[in-house]
Design a protein around this nucleic acid. Sequence first.
DNA 1: TCCTCCATGATATAACATAACATCTAGGCA
DNA 2: TGCCTAGATGTTATGTTATATCATGGAGGA
Lengths: 144, 144
Amino acid sequence: MGNSIKEAEKYCKENDLKFTPVRRKVLEILLQKNKALGAYEILDLLREAGFKNQPPVAYRALDFLVKNGFAHKIEQLNSFVGCMHPGKDHSPAFMICRNCDFVSEEEAINPSFSVSKIASKAGFKVEKAVIEARGLCHSCASSA
Amino acid sequence: MGNSIKEAEKYCKENDLKFTPVRRKVLEILLQKNKALGAYEILDLLREAGFKNQPPVAYRALDFLVKNGFAHKIEQLNSFVGCMHPGKDHSPAFMICRNCDFVSEEEAINPSFSVSKIASKAGFKVEKAVIEARGLCHSCASSA
DNA sequence: TCCTCCATGATATAACATAACATCTAGGCA
DNA sequence: TGCCTAGATGTTATGTTATATCATGGAGGA
Ligand SMILES: [Zn+2]
Ligand SMILES: [Zn+2]
Ligand SMILES: [Zn+2]
Ligand SMILES: [Zn+2]
């Protein structure tokens, strides 16, 4: 967790990317909350931390984090999570609990073998795959 | 295509659902355009066809169509497509071309295959899976 | 020094979606 | 027939998510 920040810092240094205060803060927020957050929720937390709070502040930082693999967008929720496997070139699959809103990031083993298999039939060249499952997490399923 | 309308009609009759003019028209629009359309684009087309054009008109019809499996929402695009495999209880996977915006719906063979395999490791009970690939369609990949 | 690149500040607005309440209409049933 | 009910539609307003645009600032190279 504190580790992911370190990883991001290292990666940025090695790749000439600027890990600026606001970008760092947004990543810290995402990792610390450990759940999906909307851009405007993040914005509120930035304000509390003394940063400016116009929408572009959050969206720019999020763009940076997503683009460089430090965070992901959850399309079904229009919200964002910190990456749980930073540094790796990976192909995530998300499990979103409809009861407690917890989001877990799993590795879509074999760069989405499922998806490319379907795609190849259609002659489609996949560049990125969004895989998001909705349902019940282990804990909520047990107590149901 | 005209077939999908017939299928919807039949399904609604059998299940006591009202396939009203506006619902039918929205489905016709989606099937005819054969690409992902935003709710407000649909709204414009409804207006042209003489329907009311406040946002709820489109969203209500889309809710109905999605809920009953006649259409799908493409989360990455905040837009909607007519279903290509109506009537079947199916688990779709979408291929979205970043060049020409064409969206094709494929069958995610073996619903439990890809996603639930990942999910089971995490103790997650999948109820619905969103699978959307971005990349290049056959035609755009060829001419690149 | 001064130039360039990119990040940030700031304002405005676009795009997507729903809440809430009124009205209408078809179908069940006294 | 006349009432009642449920669901569909009409209508107004507003909430939520995201981007365009132009101005300003600051680090680093020529
Ligand atoms: Zn990740
Ligand atoms: Zn849960
Ligand atoms: Zn379908
Ligand atoms: Zn294409």
